[in-house]
Simulated scan of single mutants.
Amino acid sequence: MSSSKLTKICAYSLIICHFVLLATSCSPSTVTPTTPESVPLDQPEPLSFEDDAGREITLPQKPQRIVVLSPQLLNLLYAVGGRAVARATSTGETVPETAENLEDVGGMTTVHTEKLLALKPDLVIGSTVFHRDLAGVLDESRVPFALFKLGTYSDLKEKAVLFGKIAGTEGKAKEELVKLDRQMNQLTAKVPANQAPTFIMLNVTPSSISVQRQNMIGLEVAAMLKMKNVAETLPASDTSPSTAPFSLEKIVELNPDFIFILIHGARTEGEHKIRSDLAGQPAWASLRAVKENRLAILPSDLFLSNPGFRLNESVEYLAKLVYPDVYGHGK
């Protein structure tokens, strides 16, 4: 082959290689798609609220290890579908069957803080009356601690909604409230409009007797039935503004249509106190309520402490005692 032909072949080869390289460089490159990092769409929102002690509580998420120190509040939590891992106990108080075997952290007024903290709770619920002094140790341990009161029907409605939010069962809480409202309206609608019977409510303990002036669920139930508490205007006790010192002379002067008794503690001891301090007194026997058998010892779980979603039972129980012709005879 001549040198001129070889030169031409080399030139053609270079031209072809040039075009091949050019075509390769201009072709679209293959891009490997990258998967974006997954972003959680259901990240829980924190829940903030103010308790009845004025404390601001923030829960970063739905609590999973709740400890409840009051039977009243435990009953309410369970009624709206919530659950707890431990509870405090109290003599004479009932709790839901599903809560009976919960871990015990002591009595309602004698909580074992070491045992409580060992459970690593993410929320502790207590009573404004009994548990304020636990705030220091729980705050120091960075355990969310909420204090509540459950005295009135209004308290019940407010706390039921809040407990539903805490437990993630707000829908059930609202359903239960609608049901209770309906039952309460049906009961109170039958109250005679032309009657307003008078009453007093006595607190009996093994060592004392006092008259309830205000701030008790039993008084609110009586008011729903259009009853008049004649002890409301009595001078308050020095140690308890909601009660008045017991004075048989004053009660004879008021002479109410009904006398209701609430026993604090063991019923047998309370009944003994009634027999020893009241039953033998001629002035007591002269009272209209005693002579006409309108004296009743009321169940503490329905009238002394707020019964929660059993409040309709409280209304019906008292209505049968006061208006038997309308509601039927009670116990």
Rank of each mutant, 00 (worst) to 15 (best):
A167G: 05
D155I: 11
T205W: 09
V191H: 03
A189V: 10
L254E: 03
Q61W: 03
A244S: 14
Y12V: 15
S208R: 09
E316Q: 14
A160G: 11
V178M: 09
R132A: 11
L262M: 11
D155N: 15
Q64R: 13
H131I: 08
H112A: 13
V20E: 08
I209K: 00
P256V: 10
P307L: 03
K159T: 01
F303D: 01
S141C: 04
R83K: 15
L156V: 07
N255S: 09
E45M: 12
S305E: 08
L47H: 09
L187R: 01
N312C: 09
N75S: 13
T198I: 06
Y317D: 05
P245F: 06
V204I: 15
Q183G: 03
A189R: 13
L119S: 10
I259E: 01
L321E: 11
T24Q: 13
C17P: 01
L22Y: 13
L298E: 05
E316V: 01
V290N: 10
S314D: 09
P282A: 06
S210R: 09
G330P: 07
L254M: 12
P44A: 08
T91D: 15
T98A: 15
T239L: 10
P192D: 09
R132S: 12
T169E: 13
E271I: 09
N255H: 08
S305R: 10
R267V: 12
H264G: 02
V68K: 00
E56H: 13
A146C: 12
L180Y: 05
Q72E: 15
F19C: 11
S286A: 14
S242Y: 05
G81F: 01
R275D: 12
E50M: 12
K159P: 00
V129P: 00
L147S: 07
S2C: 07
V230S: 04
G81T: 04
P256R: 08
G136F: 03
K226S: 15
L21P: 05
A296K: 13
I209L: 12
Y317N: 02
R275C: 00
T198G: 05
F260L: 06
G106S: 07
P121Y: 04
T32A: 12
V85F: 10
L41Y: 05
I251C: 08
Q43K: 15
L147N: 07
P192G: 08
K174S: 12
T32Q: 14
L138K: 10
T110W: 06
A223W: 00
G308Y: 02
K228G: 00
